[in-house]
Design a binder for these strands. Structure first.
Length: 552
RNA sequence: GCGCCUGUGGCUCAGUUGGAUAGAGCGCAGCCCUGCGGAGGCUGAGGUCGCGGGUUCAAAUCCCGCCAGGCGUACCA
């Protein structure tokens, strides 16, 4: 890319200056090329002279002057300038910028796609909520984050698989089964109370009713254990279907629903435990089986198998990651967890090491929790007590596009307050409308052009020379950098800001530059720019899993 | 106690990984429709970047110490 070109250009200039112009001979640091935020400072800027000042024992400006004499610019660059205290700024050529519109138009929907992944196989696991209740608002965040990352990685040339780990075995499932059995009996007129540690939510009653309607009272005849487990399986499947529907509402779909239970049926759990044992990471203590994470630099050991013989969540998760890395051979695995799982990170990394894999291959994004409020009142989220605001309720009140945008525009590191009242109030007056309005406006202009039978394929983009036009082009060309940035940082929250920026610059351009006018040549050139803007804006929206409306 | 995350205009948040005058949206005070969608454009007010030290030519950004909030610190998941 251009950045690399400029880095090399500077590098050569310095070396030349050192050879021919008595610039102090020192080893060069890594040359950074940044994009100045102030447009007056050009398109690219380097602080190399400032970095060299110390080792060269010269003033940064003097260094810049010497380097400047030996710079030979690549053809895309119009000029460069030196600015105090020691910046070197580069400005792109206007005609080069205008010409880039053609490459956007040629690429179409694939504009911005990169070849970073080179087919590398990557798995994104997210949401993975226990299917013992409906998704609540907080779960939406991870869902949107994960699905957006999947879109971006796909665009960057990776082979991506989205996975939901279905927790369908273990203690929580037993509790769910017993709770459902109690509700089932209640529905059939029995005086039974839900276990105190059980799931109290009303959705359990609905679930029980549904099952009574369909299956009748035949489970009453079965032994308790059997009845609970059979009912539980039916209930769980229904819950999973509900979850799938909820996720679909916010445009999230998975490639794989991985059954945790399968790890026990196909012996991979046992293989994993044996592997850990063989490698000497396992001990027995107090009748339980422990993973010696402290030997791998952890501050303490962790239980794998309880004294009652049942595996812990941790053991199960190690087996699951054994499956991901060893059985399915993913090159990289990205897990998205809530902040309440942060303590799980170091021991999981240690486990990956114990499995003989590089912990770097496992990337874990910790997503801070959401606090929910209605105006001043804070709502506590608890699935057990049944006091939840479901994702479905939220989507019912706030459009899916708005939900996605809202969840995406905050970095995963910051915990967010979700004020439902505010979200509802602002849903008619928020950036999503602003951005989508820009897209609809573009569509409208292109409709007009079509109606007037203006064929702009032959439009001459070199006619685009004014400020608003060039500013817009500059923004459009940032898309590949944005995508690359998201891949490198795993922070998709830059996307919504970029989309908003495009919309702002476009609206401003629209105000200042009449597109369809009497000047036929200029009209055609501007239509090309407008169409290119539509491509980029739609791409950004689609990467975020949002719609790009033709009208609204 | 220890560990992770956070603290930036009234509110909700960005800040390109140490660079130039700290930016948006909402809200607030104004201005702009004889032309392609006014769900728009333009201008303005509003900031001790939690507090105090330190490193550096340069700190919202790095280091140390406080203060405040969230989460974790289970043979829960």
């Amino acid at each position: 890319m251009l950045k690399e070109k400029l880095v090399i250009c500077l590098q050569q200039a310095v070396i030349k200056a050192q050879q021919e112009d008595s610039l102090v001979a020192v080893a060069l640091p890594e040359i950074a090329m940044e994009r100045p935020q102030n447009p007056e400072h050009g398109d690219f800027a380097s602080v190399l002279p400032l970095k060299l000042a110390r080792t060269m024992k010269m003033s940064p400006l003097a260094i810049a002057e010497k380097i400047a004499k030996h710079i030979s610019l690549p053809p895309e660059i119009d000029s460069f300038s030196i600015a105090p205290p020691g910046f070197i700024n580069f400005t792109l050529r206007d005609d080069w910028l205008a010409k880039q519109i053609e490459s956007i138009l040629t690429a179409g929907e694939s504009y911005g796609d990169l070849a970073l992944g080179k087919g590398s196989h990557i798995q994104l696991e997210f949401v993975s909520v226990n299917p013992t209740g409906p998704l609540h608002v907080g779960h939406g965040r991870g869902a949107v984050l994960g699905s957006t990352l999947a879109n971006v990685f796909t665009a960057a040339g990776y082979s991506v698989e989205k996975e939901y780990l279905l927790n369908n075995v273990g203690h929580q499932i037993d509790v769910f089964n017993r709770s459902l059995y109690a509700r089932y009996q209640q529905c059939l007129g029995k005086e039974i109370s839900v276990p105190t540690d059980g799931y109290q939510g009303n959705y359990m009653i609905d679930l029980a009713k549904e099952i009574v309607d369909k299956e009748g009272d035949r489970f009453l005849a079965l032994p308790v254990e059997e009845a609970a487990s059979e009912l539980g399986e039916i209930g769980l499947n229904k819950m999973v279907e509900e979850i799938k529907q909820d996720l679909k509402l916010i445009n999230v779909e998975f490639d794989t629903w991985f059954s945790e239970k399968s790890l026990y049926h196909n012996k991979q759990y046992h293989q994993t435990m044996e592997l850990l044992q063989r490698e000497g990471y396992v001990t027995r203590k107090d009748n339980a089986v422990w993973f010696e994470s402290s030997a791998l630099g952890e501050d303490k050991d962790n239980v794998l198998v309880r004294s009652d013989g049942s595996p812990t969540y941790f053991a199960s998760d190690i087996a699951y990651h054994y499956n991901k890395f060893v059985e399915r051979k993913f090159d990289t695995v990205i897990d998205i967890w809530g902040a309440d799982h942060q303590g799980h990170v170091p021991r999981m990394k240690a486990a990956i090491k114990a499995l003989g894999k590089n912990p770097e291959q496992l990337k874990i994004i910790i997503c801070q929790l959401i606090t929910l409020s209605r105006g001043k009142e804070i709502i506590r989220i608890s699935k057990r007590s049944g006091d939840i605001v479901t994702l479905r309720e939220l989507v019912h009140e706030v459009r899916p596009d708005v939900c996605r945008f809202f969840f995406l525009s905050r970095s995963a590191d910051s915990q967010m307050d979700f004020d439902i009242e505010l979200a509802k109030k602002q849903s008619a007056d928020n950036p999503v409308y602003y951005i989508q309005y820009a897209h609809a406006r573009i569509a409208s202009i292109l409709r007009l052009a079509k109606q007037r039978e203006i064929d702009y394929i032959q439009g001459d983009v070199s006619l685009l020379t004014t400020g608003p036009e060039l500013t817009l082009i500059r923004r459009l060309l940032l898309l590949p950098e944005i995508i690359e940035g998201v891949v490198n940082t795993l922070e998709p929250h830059h996307l919504p800001y970029y989309a908003q920026d495009i919309a702002t610059v476009f609206h401003s351009f629209y105000k200042q530059c009449r597109v369809v006018s009497k000047d036929e040549a200029l009209t055609k050139a501007r239509l090309k720019l407008v169409r290119a803007t539509q491509i980029v804006l739609a791409k950004a929206l689609h990467l975020m899993g949002m719609t790009a409306p033709e009208s609204m």
